[in-house]
Amino acid sequence: MRWLRIAALLVVFGFLVGAAVWTRPFGAPQAMEMDEHFIERSQEEAAANNVVTAVLFDYRGFDTLGEATVLFAAVVGVALVLRRWAR
């Protein structure tokens, strides 16, 4: 049982490393149209030098809204779980 577990882990490890080695080369992304649009337009549309902030709060604001919701839910969950002892 123990050797079976180690063998399964080695197979998964080999698959992961092989996929990492044989995937497309590092530093040469294939589809960059959306990111080139963001890089070119963020200074005139969002008036921001930091393109990452422009993507985060302007182009993809819904993601940030959902993320804030998740953070709020996590804080409420922690407070709910620990409310008996953390007083």
Binding site: M34, I39, V52, R60, E67, L71, A74, V78
Partner: peptide
Amino acid sequence: MPTPQALTLTSIVIGVATTALLLA
């Protein structure tokens, strides 16, 4: 590319929140 960086930032904050919930 800015989009993977922005979405990874989102993922990091969600990871911190879920880790706090796990430890709780």
